[in-house]
Measured scan of single mutants.
Amino acid sequence: RDEMEEWSASEASLFEEALEKYGKDFNDIRQDFLPWKSLTSIIEYYYMWKTTD
């Protein structure tokens, strides 16, 4: 399955904003920016995001 497909463009930009603010503190990212996403989903997205450019 492709996690990228499940993320909207606005969620992707929220994620990048959160990453700038918190770094890899995924709990804070989830709490402040993406509370409707699971922690697992955020972490999986991060690793996919990191490996695609």
Rank of each mutant, 00 (worst) to 15 (best):
R1H: 07
R1P: 07
R1I: 12
R1D: 08
R1N: 15
R1M: 13
R1C: 13
R1W: 12
R1T: 14
R1S: 10
R1A: 14
R1G: 14
D2G: 14
D2L: 15
D2R: 09
D2I: 11
D2H: 09
D2A: 13
D2W: 09
E3S: 14
E3I: 12
E3C: 01
E3P: 07
E3V: 11
E3T: 15
E3H: 09
E3L: 13
M4L: 08
M4T: 07
M4H: 14
M4P: 07
M4W: 05
M4V: 08
E5P: 09
E5Y: 12
E5D: 09
E5G: 07
E5F: 05
E5S: 11
E5W: 05
E5C: 09
E5Q: 08
E6Y: 09
E6H: 15
E6S: 09
E6F: 11
E6L: 03
E6D: 08
E6P: 08
E6A: 14
E6T: 09
E6Q: 11
W7M: 00
W7T: 01
W7K: 06
W7E: 00
W7G: 08
W7V: 00
W7H: 01
S8Q: 03
S8A: 04
S8G: 06
S8I: 07
S8N: 11
S8F: 00
S8H: 04
S8W: 09
A9H: 10
A9Q: 10
A9Y: 01
A9R: 08
A9M: 01
A9W: 07
A9E: 12
A9K: 07
A9N: 04
S10Y: 11
S10T: 12
S10G: 09
S10N: 12
S10H: 11
S10P: 03
S10D: 11
S10F: 10
E11C: 02
E11L: 04
E11H: 10
E11M: 13
E11T: 06
E11V: 04
E11W: 03
E11R: 01
E11G: 04
E11F: 01
E11S: 01
A12I: 11
A12V: 13
A12P: 02
A12H: 12
A12R: 14
A12T: 10
A12E: 07
A12C: 09
A12S: 08
A12K: 15
A12F: 00
A12G: 05
A12Q: 14
A12N: 11
S13I: 07
S13R: 14
S13E: 14
S13K: 15
S13H: 10
S13W: 04
L14E: 00
L14N: 05
L14P: 01
L14V: 04
L14A: 08
L14F: 02
F15K: 01
F15R: 07
F15P: 01
F15A: 01
F15Q: 10
F15I: 02
F15E: 04
F15C: 00
F15G: 03
E16K: 08
E16T: 04
E16D: 06
E16P: 05
E16I: 04
E16V: 06
E16A: 11
E16R: 08
E17H: 03
E17L: 11
E17I: 05
E17V: 06
E17K: 10
E17P: 03
E17G: 03
E17C: 06
E17S: 08
E17R: 09
A18P: 01
A18F: 01
A18W: 02
A18K: 06
A18M: 05
A18D: 00
A18R: 01
A18Y: 04
A18S: 00
A18N: 01
L19D: 01
L19P: 01
L19T: 06
L19H: 07
L19E: 02
L19G: 12
L19A: 04
L19S: 04
L19I: 13
E20M: 06
E20A: 12
E20W: 05
E20H: 07
E20D: 09
E20N: 09
E20Y: 07
E20F: 06
E20T: 10
E20I: 09
E20K: 12
E20S: 08
E20L: 11
K21M: 03
K21N: 00
K21P: 02
K21T: 07
K21W: 02
K21I: 08
K21G: 02
K21C: 04
K21H: 04
K21A: 03
K21S: 03
Y22D: 00
Y22W: 02
Y22L: 06
Y22M: 03
Y22H: 12
Y22I: 13
Y22C: 14
Y22E: 02
Y22T: 05
Y22S: 07
Y22N: 04
Y22G: 05
Y22A: 04
G23P: 02
G23T: 01
G23R: 02
G23I: 00
G23Y: 08
G23Q: 03
G23N: 05
G23F: 08
G23C: 08
K24W: 00
K24V: 10
K24G: 10
K24I: 06
K24S: 11
K24Q: 12
K24E: 11
K24A: 13
D25E: 12
D25M: 10
D25V: 02
D25F: 05
D25A: 15
D25W: 03
D25C: 12
F26L: 10
F26A: 02
F26S: 00
N27W: 05
N27L: 05
N27I: 15
N27K: 06
N27A: 12
N27M: 07
N27T: 11
N27F: 12
N27Q: 12
D28K: 15
D28E: 14
D28R: 15
D28Q: 15
D28Y: 14
D28H: 06
D28V: 15
D28W: 13
D28L: 15
D28T: 15
D28P: 07
I29T: 08
I29N: 15
I29R: 13
R30K: 12
R30Q: 15
R30F: 09
R30N: 13
F33L: 11
F33R: 07
L34Q: 09
W36S: 05
W36Y: 05
W36R: 06
W36C: 03
W36N: 10
W36K: 10
W36T: 04
W36E: 01
W36P: 02
W36H: 10
K37F: 03
K37G: 02
K37E: 02
K37Y: 02
K37Q: 00
K37C: 03
K37R: 08
K37T: 01
K37V: 02
S38H: 08
S38C: 00
S38Q: 08
S38E: 13
S38I: 05
S38P: 06
S38R: 03
S38A: 02
S38L: 04
S38D: 04
S38F: 02
S38Y: 04
L39R: 08
L39V: 09
L39K: 07
L39C: 03
L39S: 06
L39Y: 06
L39D: 07
L39Q: 02
L39N: 14
L39G: 01
L39T: 08
T40Y: 06
T40H: 11
T40W: 01
T40G: 10
T40D: 14
T40Q: 14
T40K: 14
T40S: 09
S41T: 02
S41M: 03
S41P: 14
S41K: 03
S41E: 14
S41H: 04
S41D: 13
S41L: 06
S41N: 06
S41A: 11
S41I: 00
I42N: 13
I42C: 04
I42E: 01
I42F: 05
I42H: 03
I42R: 04
I42S: 04
I42A: 00
I42Q: 01
I42W: 10
I43P: 01
I43R: 14
I43C: 07
I43T: 10
I43S: 09
I43E: 15
I43Q: 13
E44Q: 12
E44H: 08
E44N: 14
E44F: 03
E44K: 10
E44R: 13
E44Y: 02
E44T: 07
E44D: 11
E44L: 04
E44S: 12
E44A: 07
E44G: 04
Y45G: 00
Y45V: 00
Y45T: 08
Y45H: 13
Y45C: 05
Y45R: 11
Y45Q: 06
Y46I: 05
Y46N: 01
Y46C: 00
Y46H: 10
Y46E: 06
Y46V: 00
Y47V: 04
Y47H: 14
Y47D: 10
Y47R: 14
Y47K: 15
M48Q: 13
M48W: 10
M48K: 13
M48L: 10
M48F: 14
M48V: 10
M48P: 02
M48T: 11
M48A: 12
M48R: 14
W49Q: 14
W49S: 14
W49P: 05
W49V: 10
W49I: 12
W49R: 15
W49H: 13
W49Y: 13
W49F: 10
W49L: 13
W49T: 14
W49E: 13
W49M: 14
K50D: 05
K50T: 09
K50S: 10
K50H: 11
K50L: 07
K50M: 11
K50Y: 11
K50G: 01
K50W: 01
K50N: 12
T51R: 11
T51K: 05
T51I: 08
T51W: 02
T51V: 05
T51H: 10
T51Y: 14
T51E: 06
T52A: 11
T52Q: 06
T52C: 14
T52R: 13
T52H: 08
T52I: 09
T52K: 14
T52M: 08
T52E: 13
T52P: 12
T52L: 09
T52D: 10
D53H: 14
D53S: 01
D53V: 09
D53F: 08
D53C: 14
D53P: 12
D53K: 13
D53A: 11
D53R: 11
D53L: 05
D53M: 12
D53Y: 06
